Computed example of a mutant assay.
Amino acid sequence: MTELPRLRDLIALTLRSPRQAAGHLIALNLSRGILWQALLLVVILSVLAAQVSVLVSFGTLSPMLDTGEGMISPLFASPLVLGLMQGVLLLISILATYWIGRAMGGTGSFEAVQVTVCWLQFMMLCLQLVQILLSLLIPPLGAMIGMAGIVVFFWLFTQFVTVVHGFRNPGLVFLAILLSLTGFVLGVSILMASLGITFMGEIPDV
Rank of each mutant, 00 (worst) to 15 (best):
L13R: 14
I145H: 03
L45W: 07
Y98D: 01
E202R: 15
G146C: 05
M200C: 13
A143K: 13
Y98A: 03
G201E: 15
M64T: 13
G105T: 09
I72D: 01
L134D: 04
L125Q: 01
L141N: 10
G33E: 09
F174N: 08
I197K: 02
L48K: 09
L178Q: 12
L7Y: 10
A21I: 04
R19E: 13
R102D: 07
L15R: 06
P139L: 01
T158L: 00
G105K: 09
S53E: 12
I197L: 06
R32Y: 06
S135M: 08
V130F: 03
V42Y: 01
V54L: 06
Q37V: 09
L55Q: 14
L127N: 02
G183E: 00
A27F: 08
G196A: 05
P74R: 05
S17L: 09
F154L: 05
Q20G: 14
M64L: 10
L175Y: 11
L89E: 12
S78W: 04
T67A: 15
I44K: 06
Q114S: 15
S194F: 06
F76G: 02
I203V: 09
I100C: 05
L136E: 04
G171N: 05
A12K: 15
M123W: 06
L179Q: 10
M192D: 03
V52K: 04
F160Q: 02
L45S: 07
A143D: 13
R102E: 06
M104C: 14
G187D: 07
R168T: 11
L141K: 06
Q131N: 11
G106W: 04
L133P: 12
M147E: 14
W119V: 10
Q86D: 15
L156N: 01
V115Q: 00
L137G: 11
L90N: 01
